[in-house]
Design a protein around this nucleic acid. Structure first.
Length: 760
DNA sequence: TTAGGGTTAG
């Protein structure tokens, strides 16, 4: 209690006054009081949070400084040292140095509290610089809420604090908050200075609020800051970011002493506005260029896919840094020259986190997921630490491969290494968990996310819809409306898919109409595709057909394919033939259409037509896309094709599969050979069917995992009728949960039934 | 003043 009371004295003596004379409202007082209690607790805990390394470096630093001071004052006795006024100044200097050093690196919320408490305890609150550093430390720690709490506790904050807070908001991408605080500052009649304008203008640029920018321009002139090059440069940037390069140029031409940053900003501004020749012209006229000028212009050509020009400028550069190299790699990404890209990556003298990120993201975007993961593994053993952009690159690779173990490992890595959990990371995590079949984990990430935007919510809706949890998807949509999170076209694709998977025709139609009526979103071909699916699956095939005929845009082959699929489900051979003919005309080399029609013929027992179609496929050289199933066991992803015998445990897999088949046949399983396309006899058809890739994967899953672990399989095509039945039976007779992700949706098999209720 | 990131129809 004594220690606590001691702190109260310090605190009351500073700006956190609780005196009755304070003008704060009762609510504010209570809030400050609670805040103080928090602080007091943190003061008491001060000695507890230091990690052994931090503590020892603090102590050695302090000992070193104290030793130096004591040496310089060696003529004095120890007691004189601690009693003399000089010594008290020196003590503050020691604290100041230590606090300043500590505030330079990111901190957790508790560490921030403790540091803040220490600042209060040692009287450093009187030092504006330290307070400014504390705000900026909150900023780099992504804790602007905490900074605001401190800021709101200060009576009559000085301009310096406003500037630091606005800068912090801007650095954290909280541009709205930055502008709101700026408005509050103006409302309180605080006069701006030349430090205020650049940070406020940056927020204006990011939000594209040109009207606010123009007002600020007026104020700049009124305040007499209009001739300061930093402010003028910020104005140029603001105008160009808002698409007004001519205004930017007007300001630029009026700058009497242009520095290289001012030139670079105008060049970047032209590039932002798509005025590439003006950018090149200005670059040619530059009196002095720095490395950024070169990088900007090289990057411009890379982004436009003009690699030859970019490469010649790159070769011409007087010096290069890692940014120059990264720009070149990105250029090769853009043109799709992956070998050249890899060559540049391998030969660059020094790689940083961006170099790795560009490479990983490029592999993922081009569908080379295994290569992306391999590169990530290489990065982990290199001297470059992955960051939030890296994980956003890697997680989709895990998602596509259905590699849950690996995805979970990445999630744990994020937690362990305090990788910034921003809205991009959370979206990628939700998507990964969803695509890997772990909808509960996806929901957990959603619930814990601090920021929820349109992308994050749309991803959650998509995940729930794909897993057949339409009701929960609708709840997320309701949440978006309540919170004012604007849905976009992708949100509605997710909602329509959710309806389609469970056959909620009326609800789906309601969302389809709501798009335009309530949210002014014009339905795209994707939405029409979803509605065709919604109607077609539910058996309203004619309505679906009518919708295609009356669509305001040309129907994409996918839309016809959707109708064909509906014809297969409902055995509508007549319409299927008509649709397939049209489709085969549109996409003569796409195997899926032939396969679907052939399956429809086979199911209807029209073997002659099926054989004729197969001949046509042969003549046209159309190859059936091989079915491929992947399964992850102990973080290793194994891929299987039908009849595949390349797996190291091939013998055991086939033996297990034979045993499963025998057991299931004894329980009444009869292979459904009508879904086999090949022109072979029934026995052979059965052989083909029984060695489908997902059956091999499930056999491998059964022998490699314990009985409590769900077996997760990812299939590149739609699961066939026979495999669907097979999985249901395994889930009963082997008491195993099986989760299959096919190219359209998830199937959770438990106790003999599937989450799709055979509606797929 | 210069480089890298998330959701989508069969």
């Amino acid at each position: 209690m004594v220690a606590v009371a001691g702190v109260v004295v310090v605190v009351v003596g500073d700006s956190f006054s609780l005196s009755p004379s304070s003008s704060s409202s009762a609510w504010q007082t209570r809030r400050k009081f609670l805040f103080l209690l928090d602080m007091l607790l943190a003061c008491r805990l001060f000695s507890l949070w230091l990690s052994p390394t931090t503590a020892s470096s603090f102590l050695s630093n302090r000992n070193r400084i104290e030793h130096q001071q004591q040496s310089s004052m060696s003529c004095l006795s120890p007691s004189t040292v601690f009693l003399s006024p000089i010594s008290s100044i020196s003590k503050v200097t020691i604290e100041e140095e230590w606090v300043s050093t500590s505030l330079k690196s990111p901190k957790t919320k508790n560490q921030l509290k403790t540091l803040h408490a220490h600042i209060i305890k040692t009287g450093l609150t009187r030092n504006d610089l330290v307070f400014g550093q504390l705000f900026l430390c909150c900023s780099i720690s992504n804790s602007m809420q905490y900074a605001r709490q401190i800021f709101d506790g200060i009576d009559d904050p000085k301009l310096f604090f406003y500037n630091a807070m606005i800068k912090g908001y801007s650095q954290n991408g909280a541009y709205d908050e930055a502008l709101q605080l700026y408005s509050l500052m103006r409302f309180r009649a605080i006069t701006c200075d030349s430090f205020t304008f650049p940070v406020v203008l940056r927020s204006v640029s990011s939000l594209g609020k040109v009207d606010v920018g123009k007002e600020l321009h007026g104020l700049v002139m009124k305040m007499g800051c209009g001739s300061r090059v930093i402010v003028q440069t910020s104005l140029i940037d603001m105008y160009c970011a808002c698409g007004l390069s001519n205004y930017g140029r007007y300001v630029f031409d009026a700058v009497s002493e242009k520095d290289v940053i001012c030139w670079n900003t105008m060049i970047s501004g032209y590039i932002k506005c798509g005025e590439y020749s003006s950018a090149q012209e200005l670059f040619d006229r530059m009196p002095v260029r720095n490395i950024s000028s070169w990088n900007t212009i090289v990057d411009m050509y890379c982004k436009r896919g003009k690699l030859e020009r970019a490469r010649s400028l790159f070769d011409e550069m007087p010096e290069r840094d890692v940014i120059s190299w990264n720009a070149l790699i990105s250029g090769y990404v853009k043109t799709g020259e992956s070998e050249a890209m890899r060559r540049v990556f391998d030969e660059m003298p020094q790689k940083n986190v961006v170099s790795w990120n560009v490479m990983i993201t490029c592999y993922v975007h081009n569908g080379h997921f295994m290569e992306a993961l391999e590169l990530f593994r290489m990065m982990l053993v290199s001297d470059v630490k992955p960051n939030e952009v890296t994980v956003v690159g890697v997680l989709p690779a895990c998602a596509h491969l259905g590699a849950l173990d690996l995805g979970q490992w990445v999630h744990a890595y994020i937690d362990r290494n305090r990788v910034k959990m921003d809205v991009y990371v959370n979206t990628a995590l939700i998507d990964m968990y969803g695509k890997c079949g772990s909808v509960e984990d996806a929901k957990r990430v959603f619930n814990n996310a601090v920021v929820r935007d349109t992308f994050l919510c749309s991803t959650m809706i998509e995940v729930l819809g794909t897993h057949g949890k339409a009701d929960e998807a609708f709840l997320i949509f309701d949440y978006m409306r309540r919170e004012g999170i604007k849905p976009n076209d992708v949100t509605f694709v997710g909602l329509l898919k959710a309806c389609s998977h469970v056959g909620l025709v009326d609800t789906g139609m309601k969302y389809f109409q709501m798009m335009n009526k309530e949210f002014k979103l014009m339905p795209k071909v994707e939405h029409y595709g979803c509605v065709v699916d919604l109607l077609g699956r539910a058996g309203h095939i004619e309505e679906a057909h009518e919708l295609i005929k009356n669509m305001p845009m040309d129907p994409h082959p996918i839309v016809w394919g959707t109708l064909l699929s509906a014809c297969r489900i409902h055995g509508n051979v007549k319409l299927a033939e008509e649709v397939a003919v049209r489709l085969i005309e549109l996409e003569p080399h796409s195997c899926g259409n032939y396969v679907l029609l052939s399956n429809i013929y086979s199911k209807a027992g029209r073997w002659t037509e099926a054989a004729k179609l197969r001949r046509k496929m042969k003549e046209k050289g159309v190859m059936k896309k091989p079915g491929c199933s992947s399964i992850e066991v102990n973080s290793v992803v194994s891929e299987f094709f039908a009849g595949d015998r390349t797996h190291p445990q091939c013998k055991a897999i086939y033996e297990t599969l034979d045993q499963i088949i025998a057991r299931l046949k004894a329980e009444g399983y009869t292979p459904c050979t009508s879904s086999v396309l090949h022109d072979v006899d029934v026995d052979e058809k059965e052989q083909v069917l029984l060695h489908h890739s997902e059956k091999l994967a499930v056999a491998f899953g059964l022998i490699s995992t314990d009985h409590k672990t769900p077996i997760r399989i990812v299939k590149n095509l739609r699961i066939c009728d026979d495999c669907h039945l097979f999985m249901k039976m395994i889930s009963t007779y082997y008491s195993r949960q099986i989760i299959v992700r096919d190219c359209s949706r998830f199937h959770h098999f438990t106790d003999g039934s599937c989450s799709c209720s055979d509606y797929w």
